[in-house]
Structures are given as structure tokens and as C-alpha cells.
């Protein structure tokens, strides 16, 4: 057994241990924090499996963003007077056997699937063979934007639907109640003036290198959301009651850019969703990044729009 496998075993054991803690824990806040840790370890295991694109996305979105959303929701419940410690949980007799069977089933399916010999012309192999024709160096970006562009476009539609759904159930929002961070303290202002520009820089970098190296619109959008979350938490931007034209345009930018370029290929006599060139890749990715960042920040802030404080 090499050191590498040993690391993998340790990581795997930590994953199982952490998930057990999260499920059986008593204090909800502690379990939320452990869940974020779990996400980071998942990201590490993806890095170990040789999938840095997915690792980046998991660290930024799966652990960071989901964690931030959950902590914010927890805080909203606490602010409304919900009990901190979750009420006594039911322990159905069948829970344990059902869970064990589910786990065993997954293991059996996976182990038998691993034994299946890989066909020489598997879709993933074809992607690598045809990648040079796309002008992209990163096969995952190639799949997302060129080979399976329709999937990615519809993914933006899912994000939009989630935002519209959240707006529909917004109810009587209480803007101005959640940002309790004192902006006058030196730490917060230093955080804002250093971290916010750096996140912008990292997001732009991730977006641009995404064509050839690990990165892309989703990772960049998630990092940009981090900047948005920071601005919301420090009260630099405040929730607004109604979405203006700019907010609406930015929310649909990714979907619209993808759809317009995809459909305009028909007018040029090509198959739909064919991208006319690298400029289209950058345009779509930029639009997607902005849409993702805005959508997720609005979902985090639980508001229809954000803007600078109005005096």
C-alpha cells in the first residue's frame, strides 16, 4: 500500500466519520459547520481523483456557497425565535436497515460497474479526440460549452427558475435586519478593501484560464458570489424591494447569451448551439458568471435586488 492510497483511506474514513457526526449530532449549528468541512474534504478527494475542475467547483459551490446559504437560513430561523437545539428526532424502526440496504446497494452497483471494461469509443474518449477541433484546451469546458451546450444552457434556466421560485415565496421580507456587522471596525474595512478586489481578480482569472486549465464560468461565478456575500454581510449593499432592469437583465444574461448565439447559428446555416468562435465562448462564459453570481447573491440575501445604501 503506497502513501497515496493511505491518504485516500484516511480521507475516505474522515468523510464517513464526518457524515455520521452531521447526521447524529445534537447541535444544529455545529453540524452545519461540520457539513462545510465535509464539503471541503469531498473537494480534496476530487483533487486526489484527478478532477481539479470538480474540486474547485465543490470547494466554492458545494462547501462554500451551500454552507453560507444554510448558515444564513439558520440565522434567519434563530432571529425568528426558532429553538437552537433541534427537537427530539424520531427513530423509526426501519431507518437503520433501509439506510444500510441503500448503502450496500450503491456499493454493489459501483463495484460491478467498476469491473465493466471501458469501451474504446466511450463518449469521454471521443471528447478528448475531438477537443482540438474546438480550440479549447480544457475538455470539461469543451463538454460544457460545445459538446453538451444545451445541457449547460438549461442549467442556467434551472438557476433562473430557482431564483424566480425564491422570489415567489419571499413574502414579507425584513430588509435591514441581517447586517449587524459594524463597518467602522478596522478589521471589516480592511477585509472589504483587500478581499473584495482579490475575489474579483480570482474570478476573472478562473474565467479566463477555464478554456485551457481547471476553472470556468461556474467556479468564477461562485468566487464572485463570495464577494457578493461579503458585501451583503457588511451592509455595503442593501436589499431593495423591487428588481430593476439591470438586475433582470443580469439574471437572464447567461441563458440569453447562450440561447441567442445558439439559435443564431441556424441563420448561418449551421446546426443549432454551434458556437461561431472563441469570442462566443468568452462571451457566454462571462454572461454565465455574472448571472450565477447575481442569482446566488440574491438567493443568499433573500431579496429581489441589491443596491448601495440609500440615504
Amino acid at each position: 500500500m503506497t502513501i497515496g492510497v493511505l491518504v485516500d483511506v484516511l480521507l475516505a474514513l474522515s468523510l464517513v466519520g464526518l457524515s455520521l457526526q452531521v447526521v447524529t449530532g445534537r447541535a444544529l449549528f455545529r453540524d452545519l459547520v461540520l457539513f462545510i468541512l465535509f464539503g471541503l474534504l469531498i473537494a480534496l478527494s476530487w483533487a486526489r481523483l484527478g478532477a481539479p475542475d470538480v474540486a474547485l467547483a465543490e470547494a466554492a459551490i458545494g462547501a462554500g456557497l451551500t454552507g453560507a446559504l444554510m448558515l444564513m437560513a439558520y440565522r434567519r430561523l434563530a432571529a425568528g425565535g426558532a429553538a437552537d437545539v433541534s427537537p427530539a428526532r424520531r427513530r423509526p424502526l426501519l431507518a437503520l436497515p433501509v439506510a444500510a440496504l441503500a448503502g450496500i446497494l450503491v456499493a454493489i452497483i459501483g463495484l460491478s460497474a467498476q469491473g465493466v471494461e471501458r469501451v474504446p469509443d466511450a463518449a469521454g474518449t471521443l471528447v478528448l479526440q475531438e477537443l482540438s477541433a474546438t480550440g479549447l484546451g480544457n475538455p470539461i469546458t469543451g463538454v460544457l460549452l460545445v459538446f453538451r451546450g444545451l445541457d449547460t444552457m438549461l442549467e442556467m434556466a434551472v438557476l433562473l427558475v430557482a431564483l424566480l421560485g425564491a422570489w415567489a415565496v419571499l413574502g414579507a421580507a425584513h430588509p435591514g435586519r441581517l447586517h449587524q456587522v459594524d463597518r467602522e471596525t478596522p478589521l471589516v474595512s480592511a477585509l472589504l478593501t483587500t478581499v473584495a478586489p482579490v475575489t474579483l481578480l480570482i474570478a476573472t482569472h478562473l474565467l479566463l484560464v477555464g478554456t485551457d486549465a481547471p476553472g470556468g464560468a461556474f467556479q468564477a461565478g461562485a468566487v464572485l458570489t463570495g464577494c457578493g456575500v461579503l458585501l451583503v454581510l457588511t451592509g455595503t449593499v442593501r436589499p431593495r424591494a423591487a428588481a430593476g432592469l439591470l438586475t433582470k437583465l443580469l439574471a437572464i444574461a447567461g441563458l440569453a447569451a447562450f440561447a441567442l448565439i445558439g439559435v443564431s447559428a441556424l441563420a448561418l446555416g449551421r446546426a443549432p448551439m454551434t458556437l461561431p468562435g472563441m469570442w462566443a465562448v468568452y462571451l457566454i462564459e462571462t454572461a454565465m458568471m455574472l448571472s450565477i453570481a447575481l442569482t446566488m447573491t440574491l438567493l443568499f440575501a433573500r431579496s429581489r435586488a441589491l443596491g448601495p445604501e440609500q440615504r
Partner: peptide, 13 residues
């Protein structure tokens, strides 16, 4: 295989 088994366990949990 290690990660596959871990994923199965986490799924069950």
C-alpha cells in the same frame, strides 16, 4: 475503490 466504498457509506448515512 476506496472512494467508491466511502461514497456508498455516506449515501447510506
Amino acid at each position: 475503490t476506496v472512494y467508491l466504498l466511502a461514497a456508498s457509506a455516506v449515501f447510506g448515512i
